[in-house]
Amino acid sequence: MPVRLHVWGERACFTRPEMKVERVSYDVMTPSAARGILEAIHWKPAIRWQVDRIHVLKPIRFQSIRRNEVGAKANASNAASAMKRGDTSGLGIVVEESRLQRAALVLVDVAYVIEAHFTMTDKAGPEDTPAKHLSMFNRRASQGQCFHRPCLGTREFAAEFALIPDGAPLPPCELEPDRRDADLGWMLHDIDFTDGRNESRFFRAEMRNGVIEVPPFHAEEVVR
């Protein structure tokens, strides 16, 4: 029971982990980002989304954007001490003092089709049938409903989405014929969060006729 979701947007940034300070996007959507979009529409601890295929529908183009960003994170111990004494003085971050200017090389005008299915996890209870979750996802996606607005890599690049019903044709691929096959190199597959491991896993992304086959997360060709 695979689902097919058409997603598109004006910009996208699927940040390469090796170039994350001045962000550089991957050429295409990562399976991890695709999973995030599906989870934004429907997810429960009982299911795990698995991305099978990513169709690239638009030519791959980049644009650079430099923004003023903040280099500091909220400090938990400061917050804890403020909470204890019951006042918030000195908790804020003064943006001028931790100012970073960072460029991001982002994708422009992207569109993909995500083909995915889900498996049940051991958190599934007796009431969690695959059919129930599938129809919940289909209902939400076809009506434009979402738990939170899905995004293309980062939250400022909101994603539009539409369900492709069973049997309906895929949207046309606008890639030039000689650009439909490419070796995209090693790409992040997803991050393994089990037991707090937070371990990234990679796979060799190859585009064949505009389509990237994504191996299962625990397959042999997915490496640490």
Binding site: V70, T88, S89, G90, L91, G92, I93, V94
Partner: peptide, 18 residues
């Protein structure tokens, strides 16, 4: 209150007092 504040904040003065 605003966490990501801009410019000099009174909070910093409070902090010094603290």
């Amino acid at each position: 209150e605003i966490y990501m504040s801009e410019g000099a904040t009174l909070n910093n003065q409070h902090k010094k007092a603290w």
